[in-house]
Amino acid sequence: MQPARSDRLGRTQEFLKQIVYGGNDGIVTTFAVVAGFAGARAEGVAQIGAVAVLVFGLANLFADAISMGLGEFLSGRAQKDLYAGQRDRLMENLRRRPAVMRDRLTRHLRLRGMSPTDAEAASAILSRTPELMSELLLHYDAGLGHPDDEDPAVNGVFTFTAFVAFGVIPLVPYLLRPADQATFALSVCATFVALTALGLLRWNATGLGLARSVGETVLVGGVCAVVAYAIGAAVGG
């Protein structure tokens, strides 16, 4: 009996893509609002204060979180539909042209290091199980993985949750103090902490280098933050 995914992988590892994708976008989305207001120099913008940052920030946060969650759900459903359609066509080819399909799988196996004899033998054995052979050919031909272990609804929930959980962090200083340069500096620090935490989560899940996991996450988020601030300064200045 095949173990459940949660037995084979921790929850963080299982949904790492959704957590990193949603978390990074959430941080950047809300900091873009903060940086836009801080970068603007128009008198009207400056007088609006922390309430405007919170209203616009939270509105963007939840609107984009819902959009991201639903987008993850729809893309997962589309992936399942694509896989099912491609698999049906491939199964038909396996029934009508078994020798041609065995030769195709043999070529793939040889390209991956098998000797010609072993590749032909493996293809002959696999051809007795068309479902497994179709999975391999879909993976080798089109890069499609079996989607049965993926639940689009759960993936969407994880994307939404990560987006909100990480995205609210840059707004926390504006919940505690009036909007001024010191509050913006605290928001910058909070954003850096959030990106670092996301990088550490990625490092813990993947086991890759600490510097790479954290550095890449902070760098990508930091570039987006600088662009947001620059646009705010250009438009409001």
Results as ranks from 00 to 15, higher is better:
V193R: 01
E72D: 12
P98N: 02
G222Y: 08
L136P: 04
R102M: 14
R177I: 07
D64M: 10
N155Q: 14
P116N: 02
F166Q: 01
G222A: 07
G69N: 11
A52W: 11
S127W: 00
R128H: 13
A119T: 06
L58V: 01
G237H: 06
A162L: 04
A165C: 03
M91H: 09
F15N: 15
N204M: 10
V168L: 02
H146K: 15
V223Y: 08
R110I: 14
A42K: 09
A65N: 08
R110M: 15
T12E: 13
P147F: 04
R128D: 12
S75D: 11
S123R: 06
Q79N: 13
V235A: 03
D148I: 02
M1G: 14
T191A: 05
V218H: 09
A162Y: 00
E135Y: 07
C224D: 08
D149I: 02
V223L: 15
S6E: 14
G49Y: 00
P170G: 03
V188K: 04
E120Q: 10
E120T: 04
F158M: 15
F160K: 04
S67R: 08
A84P: 04
V227M: 08
T206Q: 05
I231A: 01
F163Y: 13
T161Q: 13
M68C: 08
R112T: 06
K17M: 04
F15K: 14
G167K: 12
A52S: 14
D103H: 04
H146P: 07
A65M: 13
L54H: 01
Q79A: 15
V164Y: 01
A197K: 01
A63D: 03
Y229N: 02
M133F: 06
T183C: 12
E135S: 08
V100I: 12
V33F: 00
N24F: 14
N93H: 14
A179M: 09
A65R: 12
P116H: 05
E43W: 10
T196Y: 10
L82M: 13
R104V: 11
Q13P: 00
E150A: 13
N155I: 02
W203C: 11
Y229T: 01
H139D: 09
P130G: 12
A205E: 01
V20K: 07
G113Q: 00
